[in-house]
């Protein structure tokens, strides 16, 4: 069935697909930055001792993880204007992506920090290191190392999730592929071009994760 693929039309729409690809790229990059900022913040709040600061961070992570991104996206898209907050669709999309992935990033960073054996912290205490020194010299170097691979994994999810922004009419890769479907009644060509674009990003991120963990694996710990 792919034998009848009209490559001429696909080439004709290459500029649109390329623009969509770039949009997906920078939407994902913006979403990633937002997600990391939110993730670090939520994780920092979740592991500190004050309960009233911990509760909102934990609630945020739980609510996001137990509901679909599409419902979160529609919540903001249909909800914010009623509060008098009128934002461009693209910004709403970036906010939704950041909020969504931020919760997963928080969990990833938290489990990275908790994976450091307690004995190491105690060893640091008994050598007379201060809290900040223990964090800087013992906990964070190992925790961040353990975090890189899952963070890249979540970034792959984020890139794929950004396709949902097409449903609130943000023009990105998925939407660009639909142009071919709508203009030329050729859904197959549009979807194949779209899928190829995402696969490029997927394999790039996947091999980055592989290369990183091959070079930086800690002995005895994945």
């Amino acid at each position: 069935m792919l034998g009848g693929l009209n490559t001429r039309v696909m080439l004709e729409y290459l500029p649109e697909i390329w623009q969509g690809f770039l949009s997906t790229l920078w939407l994902s990059a913006a979403g990633f930055l937002g997600a990391m900022a939110l993730g670090v913040l939520a994780c920092a709040l979740a592991i500190q001792p004050l309960r009233w600061l911990r509760a909102p961070a934990v609630a945020y992570v739980d609510v996001i993880r137990a509901t679909p991104l599409l419902a979160q996206l529609y919540f903001l898209y249909f909800g914010l204007p009623r509060l008098g907050i009128v934002l461009p669709e693209m910004l709403i999309g970036i906010i939704a992506l950041s909020l969504n992935s931020g919760a997963y990033m928080a969990e990833i960073i938290r489990s990275g920090i908790l994976s450091i054996p307690r004995g190491q912290v105690e060893a640091g205490m008994s050598t007379g290191l201060s809290y900040l020194q223990r964090m800087r010299l013992i906990v964070l170097p190992q925790a961040l190392r353990a975090t890189v691979s899952p963070v890249i994994g979540q970034t792959i999810v984020l890139v794929k999730d950004s396709s949902l922004l097409s449903l609130i009419s943000v023009v990105e890769l998925t939407r660009a592929g639909q142009r071919i479907a709508i203009d030329r009644f050729m859904p197959v060509e549009g979807l194949v071009a779209t899928a190829l674009g995402y696969l490029v990003l997927y394999y790039a991120l996947k091999s980055a994760a592989g290369a990183w963990s091959a070079r930086n694996a800690l002995p005895g710990r994945g």
Binding site: I156, K160, T174, G177, V188, L191, Y198, Y202
Partner: peptide, 21 residues
């Protein structure tokens, strides 16, 4: 990998539009 590397939305469209073709 083909399905882990593409958005589910695109996969749904593929099943819905390409299989009929």
């Amino acid at each position: 990998d083909l399905f882990r590397g593409t958005p589910f939305l695109v996969q749904v469209f593929i099943v819905f539009f390409i299989l009929p073709a």
